[in-house]
Design a protein around this nucleic acid. Structure first.
Lengths: 227, 227
DNA sequence: GCCTGTATGTCAGCTAGCTGACAATTCATG
DNA sequence: CATGAATTGTCAGCTAGCTGACATACAGGC
């Protein structure tokens, strides 16, 4: 299995990893807790050691868009830290999480003295930019059915584990969360997921989506580990 | 006027700028020419010296999304170069352009030895990530009318120049291009722009949008130079 | 076990915006 | 300045998906 490109930890030099750890302190968060939320000042950059984090941006009219799920080994809170200004997104723990918190200025200083890691960061951001580009494209050109399928494919390459039924997306999502990822309503997700299940493309088991269709599975395999 | 955060050239050390120039060669493109297009292999990173570049991503169903307008001083083609793999977006000259073309591996090597510039690149990418995040939010939560207004605001802070009528967006856009930026159809843009003009919020002159409403102008001023 | 809150399933309107089609206008170029 | 191409303007259907409303199912705490 190719290492996900977003996985910072596995891609930087061992010595850099070591010194990175000494930069910050580890903090634990329970399921549902916020690591930070939109509107706050941003002073830290975070490295997720264990668990899953949901990054989402609230809109002025009450809706919210889930921009990214962060898995272990990945960095988050970077964009705002690098840019300055307050947070525009919120980060919430999907389950029990262990997070390395690094003060922004320490992180910046670290990058200046660790060019290899700095390069990796550039790549990580570039990746995320591309994923977001895809999100935009999907939003404007596909209907809900297609958007759900593409989301499943994307998650498949990031957190899919083989299962008897095909490929299991190892992440628990409510219909509301799916709706927030692809820009639709909860009701529409419920209906459409039902359709896809009846058509035999997907199946839902213990709140996890399984990709059962062979064509789809091929597509996951062909697609690069976008994340 | 605050320097746009995307403007790489003005934000890196003078000495770095010097050596960056020696890394690549300058090339000219006529209006409408492609610097690169989706599907090609990516071997270069580009720095726009003069003119305007439109970065857009075609979808499988014929539509296309304009993700970014690149102005002088800004870098483009970076995301794919950093990440590897072919281009997923196309870059087309909006007018006569002068571009510094740098081989990807030279650029990477440059970053490794110029940490200050590397840091700036991280900031530039972070900015663009945030802008794209906003695009996503707008797509899922606002109607077309609001999306057009927000687009105008965003462009206002990037390329607005004062004019007797208010703030003139110094960029010529067809209705089709506006549609591709905000994810709607040409017809809807035509109709909605007409409305907004009748309401006195915007005015169109010589194919350029002018922001005439005072409230909107305030908003542009308050908003950070997001770009 | 029971109770409470959260998640899922379903449905009957309703409407913003899409489609396709055509005319009018402006622009580019020989 | 004539001609073809691109852009803008307008309109009559039509439909995907939203809203709001309700019923059911499920999970965790006491």
């Amino acid at each position: 299995m190719q290492t996900a490109l977003a996985d910072l930890l596995s891609r930087i030099p061992d010595s850099d990893r070591e010194s990175l750890f000494h930069l910050g302190k580890v903090q634990n968060y329970a399921k549902g807790e916020f690591i930070f939320s939109a509107g706050e000042a941003s002073q830290y950059v975070f490295l997720l050691l264990k668990g899953r984090i949901k990054i989402y941006q609230p809109s002025t009219v009450g809706k919210e868009a889930i921009l990214w799920f962060c898995f272990a080994g990945e960095l988050f809170g970077l964009a705002e830290a690098a840019r300055g200004g307050g947070r525009v997104v919120s980060a919430q723990a999907c389950d029990a999480c262990e997070v390395l918190c690094i003060r922004q200025e320490h992180f910046t200083a670290f990058l200046e003295t660790h060019p290899k890691t700095s390069l990796v960061i550039v790549q990580v951001l570039a990746c995320r930019l591309r994923v977001l580009g895809d999100v935009v494209i999907n939003l404007i050109s596909d209907d809900v059915r297609t958007r759900i399928l593409k989301m499943a494919l994307q998650l498949g390459s990031r957190c899919g584990i083989p299962s008897p039924q095909g490929l299991c997306l190892d992440i628990v999502l409510t219909h509301q969360e799916i709706a927030d990822m692809i820009g639709t309503t909860r009701q529409t997700v419920t209906t459409t997921l039902g359709q896809l299940e009846r058509e035999g493309l997907l199946s839902i088991d213990h709140h996890k989506i399984h990709i059962t269709d062979n064509d789809l599975l091929q597509q996951v395999r062909r697609s690069p580990a976008l994340a």
